[in-house]
Design a protein around this nucleic acid. Sequence first.
DNA 1: CGCTCAAATATGAACGTTCATATCTCGGAA
DNA 2: TTCCGAGATATGAACGTTCATATTTGAGCG
Lengths: 341, 341
Amino acid sequence: MRRSRGVTIEDVARAAGVSRQTVSNVFNAPYRLKPETLQRVSALIEEMGYRPDQSARSLKSGTKRIIAYLTPAADDPANPNPVMSGFLEAMVTVSGEAGYKVLLVRPRPDQSREQAMDEVIASRTVDGFVLADVLHNDGRVAHLSDVGFPFVGFGRTAPGEPQTWVDVDTVQAMIDLVGLLASKGHRRVAFLGLESERPWVGHRHEGFQAGVRRFGLDTSPALEVVSPARDPDSVTETLRPLLTARARPSAVVAAGDWLAMGAYAAARAEGLSVGSDLAISGFNDLPVTAFLQPALTTVRHPLPEIANALVTRLLQVIGGGQPPPAGLLLPGTLVVRDSTG
Amino acid sequence: MRRSRGVTIEDVARAAGVSRQTVSNVFNAPYRLKPETLQRVSALIEEMGYRPDQSARSLKSGTKRIIAYLTPAADDPANPNPVMSGFLEAMVTVSGEAGYKVLLVRPRPDQSREQAMDEVIASRTVDGFVLADVLHNDGRVAHLSDVGFPFVGFGRTAPGEPQTWVDVDTVQAMIDLVGLLASKGHRRVAFLGLESERPWVGHRHEGFQAGVRRFGLDTSPALEVVSPARDPDSVTETLRPLLTARARPSAVVAAGDWLAMGAYAAARAEGLSVGSDLAISGFNDLPVTAFLQPALTTVRHPLPEIANALVTRLLQVIGGGQPPPAGLLLPGTLVVRDSTG
DNA sequence: CGCTCAAATATGAACGTTCATATCTCGGAA
DNA sequence: TTCCGAGATATGAACGTTCATATTTGAGCG
């Protein structure tokens, strides 16, 4: 009669004629074992299919080898955010390589995000948190910082707050983008923004302005417009005055890919050919960009690098090290396609 | 001096002047306690912020309250699959409501999916698996079934295999879609397929054919074309002969939304107006569909219902119940937008 | 008034590890 | 030859729960 649970360290120890500790050392301190013993016990572990019971290991050692990902509420339930699923994808890969798994945590309808975090912390289920879409004065940051639980975030905190964040250098990417357009001879470049509090909207605007100044392009405020929403109709409405003006811009830098798609529609509505009559660029490199005609020039987030930096920093904090003194900005990648001629 | 770990059951018991078991019962068998005691201890638990240590609980009871989601390798790393991220989203929500959390498991580069699962099983980290994109003769299904570990899948298995799956009733959805077109007077409807082994491609084709027969439309095989890839250029190439033919179809039913986007491009290339000159439909209801002009008529997967059925079935199997005798097909939702006139 | 029995609560053991420490082994120096 | 000490391995305790079982409590009955 076999036990219903799995193979235990005791089983392996008995089979190998060694003690539990020796088997434990195969996983936790192989250097302590005589090479010959290591070899022999390892083989037996493999053969018997033994893995340490995570619960027992966690209970005794206090380390879970699990990172919690606080799932962001989707902007709009019908529109899952592809940047964030790409980020999660990268997080899983990178933390997997570091020997950590990712646990998805979503606050129940009756809970605040902070309460959900408290529950996970109190039940000692994970070693740390990864937050997405972190912004200045983020309640989650304040809370985790207060209770002293390890965390890192994708986004940015304010200067006085903990600096355990990593983000894309949006401003620099926008400057590069404007530089690309300038190099193609564009002098009147419009910026298509979005009416939103999200910090990245501001960063993209800021980067655009910096780029325009840097490359000596037309800085007329009339070239900067803000759409109330991302749908093509709103964008078309927003851009119409600009595109029908006497001196229309030769390029539109949109604050995001969806907005850029709207700009395509606006261009078509005015009989302008995207790429030749009007250059258009986006931001985010959503899956859709490659399916547009012409394909959209955009900026790709360095998601693997961001995930890597976050995991590295988080493990550092978990390990009891000093939290990083400053946030980290990583460069985005300009993906040049046909929409910019 | 406070202990570095958290509040334990012992702490609460002492503070309340009761035994550990009584505190434990507050969570696991409240009906056993005198209402007065329950009340008093609950209040103290709340006040002290006590939560049972998951590791200790798991170790003793054997139940982890965690479901593993074996993350599917993205078709193309640059194109995360939005249907699957929507599915994961739904899984997190539904399992959260059932008191379970979702752990993401990805095989390391040196591992097969089966090896990754074995590792998770042997380390007793989760109670069961959810598989996405399950197909006939799926190695994961065979393996989990062999080792007798609880699992369910989104997709379909072959008749002889375990029937713990849930899927969309693709055929019925396609019939509905063809019915919609028939009701609008279309008689020559084309099917735009994709060169792929994926089972859903076949189901969509099958459903299309059933619909065409059912509604007495033109069944000419010439109306069924297959694109070698999903990009707009390939699709345009594939559709050109059909759209320039003497008797061109008045509608195109695409096997997926990306293909439908390609059909938009093909229509434009021939100077046809989508919606009026040529009706086009897709499948999946990707985020992009609402941003197209005209917005795309498509089929939405019943992701919350699928997740719900899967979790229900999985918990049943975990609880030691009989595995479901048959798979479950859930109806998709026709999302009628302007691309079908 | 004492007894019975169910309801309510308490106790000791066990889950499978790792930690802290103890013991063993064996080559080399005195 | 004896002893030392470092390297290698072994042992008992502890992590914080829940399980199985034991004990207490108190209402109802003869």
